[in-house]
Design a protein around this nucleic acid. Structure first.
Length: 905
RNA sequence: GCCGCUGUGGUGAAAUGGUAAACACAGCAGACUUAAAAUCUGCUGGGAUAACAUCCCUUGUCGGUUCGAGUCCGACCAGCGGCACCA
């Protein structure tokens, strides 16, 4: 017996057939506004997957989870009358291709092409309804031309007083100096300490460093000062927090972003510095050559500041340190400097530090307090200096205890709590004019006092740092920047795309010198200018790919104006009024420019949503990387008038991780990795799709089960046998004689209409597992019927088609062979989602439950129309109910019509 | 340490404040078969009992609100995830 005949249904025959047919007939081609076949009367739906990095290992089962979910939504929306944009592409710049290239000597472009080929084939074999004409590849010069173009926009923009990105030309018009302008660009050069990973031979963004190790590879990362490109994401910190509010994102992801941005309110306070404590404070004040500004969230505890700490790296250290402490300071700095970030956090328990020999003057009471350096204060946050209030800060308390520094109570905690190390709110004491005030009021009063005296003012601080944007790699977008006389400037847009040089040896140099330095001809831009040698990080291409999908073939613009507006806002503009100039402001949150088409349903004219993509599905691992970066770029493009919405993604859903059968994370070393290709080979693409959705709620972490795959496979085979029977000897399948052109009976009709209703509702909620269980219930009902009503089954196939498109299409054409008028002509995917008849759902009789004191005692079937009084009478008449009432009178009777009666005695 | 999420059968899970465990997996029994596979049918939370009748218990623990709580509120416990010397 052949392999094929043993299959419960011949999926391996018809699945490739339908995939070829969809491709040949461009079944999922999506026209843009202006295209001949574009239907302006339909609303739009933009459903997006996080595009994959095409690794050599191919798809893992996690990919089809999110992709199937969006595919079901996309197919359902298309059947429900939407213009659906559902594209796919490749995030193909990055380390693995380059590392593979280094190992094998094969150019990363070749590896990348091969991997993409493999991924594309795998995705096609799963029957996803992508518009392949819109495929994007971040390593394609036609794509990264525009990544470079957007970089130039960032480079040539600054943030004005209102927090909006504006063209740098405005500053030029104001006559600012070159240095001043360069210091305000959104893409700028910085000399600050950065995360250098020697093993990878590149610097990394904060977001790419986890526990002091590189996120990729887990190699040690050290801090060292280097000249790097930064993007001024911090200028958008407040907006990145505030504008989360209008998005339909999981609260957990919004929290993750808020915490990462880390806003805290406090005050800057300036302390004067004296060299030694020998001078009387009067004289010290006049003699003070320096001052130090600290950031604190608790200015109300200023009276309790008994010492000060500045970061060891702080530039002021050398200027204020007493000569006799110089040796100790130098030694401490060496120790701290040699520590990697990992060591610095691992050894965090024990506080270390050195006295500088200098003192600061506490402005509220003129007390001289010693200034220390310690690595628990970091250069990168606030001002790199703190006032230490050991009585009311855990870290300061530890430090003061270790070095025997004074601890002075200034907050009275509630009764029963020790004031030492008490960090919560209380009442100010020993604090002069603040005494008696609760913490919140004390904060306000001291802030006003500081401001009045010119000693400080209220401030907001963010944990978020600017985005380190350059890498010392080969396989990335080259910067469209050249250097001349020590100055940088952007190359003309006409020179884009700037291709990387063809290099034989693209290995990292082992030093911070980027590999592009080896391409001596390429580096030389002119007699006097050389090219920037760094490349952009992997995240660059993914910051805007969703925009490119709107108009992937456009060679004149990163995205066409009309296409962007339609797919991001749903509105169709008037071509006549759209200019091409950079200053053109489409959007700006101004509704006037977003004119709605008169054809669109009224519901779409409700307040515009901030995000353009209707649904974005992907893993949670990008919560603070891609999702934050993309929002930042989008806001810059929005401010500059290039896009119509302030936010990129309106609704975000995170699919849960799929674990191995052993409940552990899938990994090669554990040997619990499931290869989707094997599953498709054995059970078919529809079974894989269906199983991934049936496992449990999309957002939940859940373990794989091959038995579970068999379960849904059996379900698909049952559906197949509703329509088909197999000849016992030959194994040939033919149309079942039980399939007839008869109306469905009442029971089947009800099952069918319940399924239409529940599946439609569940798809909108992304509750695919319950939708599938409802289809199973419906199939079981049909299986039990002797005669299978053909037209009811066709309706069922329409409901099934977004989930198991191959099987649904195949059975539809099989039915068409005998009942051409009952089956759908053409693709099921082009047909209209069925509507359910509410009347079909109503039964003549319902079961009503009788409870006594909330406990179930009896059940009775009553006509649906029975009145409250009738049901109550039936309940009181029930012998079972009377038994449990024990002759007592009913105190209260609750009747829920069609549901239950509860009698309280 | 701080923040967040999740706790329901042997397993994945379901349940607008209204019959807990739908649907599926695994298991058991039966039908078909020379046999197996496949398929179909039935049973399958725990306990009491001669009983398939019947009763009691059961959604991490303890308490509260309610005629009625897996669902709402409070406290706690456990697991997972994130952040972490951020002043």
């Amino acid at each position: 017996m052949s392999e094929q005949q043993r299959k419960a249904f011949p999926f391996s025959e018809f699945e490739p057939k339908w995939q070829d047919e969809w491709e040949a007939k461009k079944a999922f081609h999506t026209p843009n506004p202006g295209d001949a076949d574009f239907d302006a009367t339909k609303p739009k739906y933009f459903v997006l997957d996080m595009f994959p990095y095409p690794s050599g290992a191919g798809l893992h089962v996690g990919h089809p989870e999110g992709y199937t979910a969006t595919d079901i939504i996309g197919r359902f929306k298309k059947m429900s009358g939407f213009n659906v944009l559902h594209p796919m592409g490749w995030d193909a710049f990055g380390l693995p291709a380059e590392q593979y290239a280094i190992k094998t000597g094969q150019h990363p472009r070749i590896t990348t092409e091969q991997n993409i080929e493999g991924f594309r084939g795998q995705l096609k074999r799963l029957g996803f309804a992508y518009d392949w004409d819109r495929e994007v590849n971040t390593t394609d010069p036609g794509y990264f031309k525009w990544t470079q173009w957007i970089f130039l926009k960032l480079y040539n923009a600054y943030v004005n007083e209102e927090g909006k990105a504006r063209p740098i030309s405005e500053l030029e018009a104001q006559g600012l100096s070159r240095a001043e302008i360069d210091s305000r660009r959104l893409a700028y050069i910085s000399e600050a300490p950065v995360n250098w990973c020697p093993e990878l031979g590149t610097v990394l963004a904060n977001e790419e460093v986890v526990d002091g190790k590189s996120e990729v590879g887990g190699f040690a990362v050290e801090r060292r000062p280097m000249r790097q490109w930064m993007l001024r994401i911090t200028a958008f910190a407040q907006r990145l927090i505030d504008e989360l509010d209008g998005l339909d994102w999981p609260e957990s992801i919004r929290l993750l972003q808020r915490n990462w941005i880390g806003r805290s309110e406090g005050a800057h306070v300036t302390f004067k510095v004296v060299q030694s404590s020998g001078l009387p404070s009067e004289a010290a004040e006049t003699a003070a050559p320096h001052s130090i500004t600290v950031f604190t969230t608790r200015p109300d505890t200023l009276f309790g500041a008994t010492y000060m700490v500045i970061a060891p790296e702080h530039s002021l250290v050398d200027q204020i340190a007493a000569p006799e402490q110089a040796a100790a300071i130098a030694a401490y700095r060496r120790v701290v400097g040699s520590k990697s970030d990992l060591e610095r956090t691992e050894l965090a328990k024990e506080k270390t530090g050195v006295f500088t020999g200098a003192y600061a003057i506490n402005p509220v009471n003129n007390e001289q307090i010693p200034i220390w350096i310690a690595d628990y204060v970091m250069m990168g946050y606030g001002t790199g200096a703190i006032m230490a209030v050991p009585a009311h800060d855990t870290r300061d308390f530890e430090f003061a205890t270790k070095f025997d520094l004074p601890v002075k109570q200034v907050v009275q905690p509630p009764a029963g709590k020790d004031w030492q190390g008490y960090t919560d709110d209380g009442i100010a004491i020993h604090s002069g004019f603040l005494d008696g005030l609760p913490t919140a009021e004390a904060k306000k009063k001291i802030a006003a006092w500081l401001e009045e005296k010119g000693l400080g003012k209220g401030t907001t601080n963010f944990k978020l740092r600017d985005w380190l944007f350059s890498r010392q790699r080969y396989w990335g977008e080259p910067f469209p920047i050249v250097w001349e006389d020590g100055h940088h400037h952007g190359i003309p847009e006409s020179e884009l795309p700037l291709l990387p040089p063809t290099l034989e040896d693209f290995r990292p140099t082992g030093t911070p010198e980027p590999p592009l330095s080896k391409a001596t001809d390429w580096v030389r831009y002119s007699d006097t200018a050389t090219r920037e040698l760094n490349t952009m990080p992997q995240w660059a291409g993914s910051c805007w790919y969703y925009l490119r999908y709107c108009d992937a073939q456009n060679s004149d613009r990163f995205v066409g104006i009309e296409a962007e507006r339609y797919w991001m806002t749903g509105s169709l503009g008037d071509n006549q009024t759209i200019g091409q100039s950079d200053n053109q402001t489409i959007g700006q949150g101004d509704n006037q420019t977003v004119s709605l088409s008169p054809h669109l349903p009224v519901s779409l004219s409700s307040p515009p949503k901030p995000g353009g993509v209707d649904l974005y599905v992907g893993g949670t691992e990008h919560a603070v990387l891609h999702l934050l970066y993309a929002r930042f770029w989008h806001k810059v493009l929005f401010d500059l008038g290039y896009v119509s919405t302030p936010e990129p993604f309106q609704r975000l859903v995170n699919q849960g991780l799929i674990m191995g059968e052993d409940g552990q994370k899938m990994s090669k070393s554990r040997g619990n990795v499931v290869n989707p290709d094997d599953v498709v080979k054995e059970y078919g693409a529809d079974a894989l799709r269906l199983y991934e959705m049936f496992m449990g709620p999309l957002e939940q972490v859940k373990p794989w089960s091959m038995k579970g795959v068999e379960g849904v496979y059996r379900f698909l085979a049952r559906v197949w046998r509703l329509v088909m029977v197999q000849h016992e000897e030959s194994g040939v399948w033919s149309l079942s004689p039980a399939l007839q052109d008869v109306p469905a009976n009442k029971q089947l009709t009800k099952a069918l209409h319940e399924t239409i209703k529940k599946c439609g509702e569940d798809i909108e909620k992304l509750s695919f597992n319950t939708a599938i269980s409802q289809m199973m219930v419906c199939t079981n009902a049909f299986t039990g019927a002797e005669v299978k009503p053909a037209s009811a089954i066709v309706t069922f196939l329409k409901v099934l088609s977004p989930f198991a498109p191959h099987l649904a299409e195949e059975l539809n054409t099989r039915i068409a062979s005998q009942f051409p008028d009952l089956a759908v002509k053409g693709f099921l995917s082009d047909t209209v989602w069925p509507t359910y008849d509410p009347a079909a759902l109503i039964e003549d009789e319902v079961e009503v439950v009788f409870q006594v004191n909330g406990k179930l005692r009896d059940k009775v079937r009553v006509p649906i129309a029975a009145s409250k009084e009738e049901i109550q009478a039936l309940a009181l008449a029930s012998t079972r109910v009377q038994e449990f009432m024990e002759g007592k009178p009913a105190k209260k009777v609750i009747v829920v019509p069609g549901k239950l009666v509860n009698i309280v005695v």
